[in-house]
Amino acid sequence: MPHDEVYSLSPLASFQSVGDGAVVLLADSGQLYSCNDTSEAFLRHVDGKRSLADIVDLLAEEYEVEREMLEADLAELAASLIQEGVIVGGKN
């Protein structure tokens, strides 16, 4: 995934933090996804304005993890969420 890729939540998806986790509901299919810590942290910053690199920077500051590993994990996560229809991407 390109570092300048900007993501937003799909118009058909709603994201909600609940208790110690979060869920995503896809309106068209009724599919409900529960989020792990990484997915929740990523989706909290998906706003249609931040690039993948911006989100990596924010999460690298928030959590003590290697930036390279975080970048690879988030790129993989973004690809999966795009495939599932949870987020959409476009160039910055």
Score class of each variant (00 low, 15 high):
Ser10Trp: 01
Pro11Val: 02
Leu12Ala: 11
Ala13Trp: 05
Ala13Lys: 02
Ala13Asp: 06
Ala13Val: 03
Ser14Val: 07
Ser14Pro: 05
Ser14Trp: 05
Ser14Ile: 00
Gln16Arg: 11
Gln16Ala: 12
Gln16Trp: 02
Gln16Val: 07
Val18Gln: 04
Gly19Ala: 07
Asp20Glu: 11
Asp20Arg: 13
Asp20His: 12
Gly21Gln: 07
Gly21Pro: 04
Gly21Val: 03
Gly21Arg: 08
Ala22Cys: 06
Ala22Met: 00
Ala22Asn: 02
Val23Ser: 04
Leu25Pro: 00
Leu25His: 03
Leu25Phe: 02
Leu26Tyr: 00
Ala27Phe: 02
Ala27Asp: 04
Asp28Ser: 14
Asp28Pro: 03
Ser29Arg: 00
Ser29Gly: 01
Ser29Gln: 05
Gly30Ala: 00
Gly30Ile: 00
Gly30Met: 05
Gly30Arg: 03
Leu32Trp: 04
Tyr33Trp: 14
Tyr33Val: 01
Ser34Gln: 12
Ser34Ile: 15
Ser34Lys: 15
Ser34Asp: 13
Cys35Lys: 05
Cys35Asp: 03
Asn36Val: 08
Asn36Ala: 11
Asp37Ser: 15
Thr38Arg: 09
Thr38Trp: 02
Ser39Phe: 04
Glu40Leu: 03
Glu40Cys: 01
Ala41Tyr: 04
Phe42Asp: 04
Phe42Cys: 07
Leu43Met: 11
Leu43Phe: 10
Arg44Pro: 11
Arg44Val: 12
His45Asn: 15
Val46Met: 03
Val46Lys: 05
Asp47Asn: 15
Asp47His: 05
Asp47Phe: 05
Lys49Ile: 02
Lys49Thr: 09
Lys49Leu: 07
Arg50Val: 13
Arg50Thr: 09
Arg50Ser: 15
Arg50Lys: 15
Arg50Ile: 11
Arg50Asp: 11
Ser51Glu: 14
Ser51Arg: 10
Leu52Thr: 14
Leu52Val: 13
Leu52Gly: 12
Ala53Asp: 13
Ala53Phe: 03
Asp54Tyr: 12
Asp54Ser: 13
Ile55Met: 14
Ile55Asn: 14
Val56Gln: 12
Val56Asp: 11
Leu58Met: 12
Leu59Thr: 02
Leu59Glu: 09
Glu61Ser: 10
Glu61Val: 06
Glu62Ala: 15
Glu62Lys: 15
Tyr63Lys: 08
Glu64Leu: 09
Glu64Met: 11
Glu64His: 13
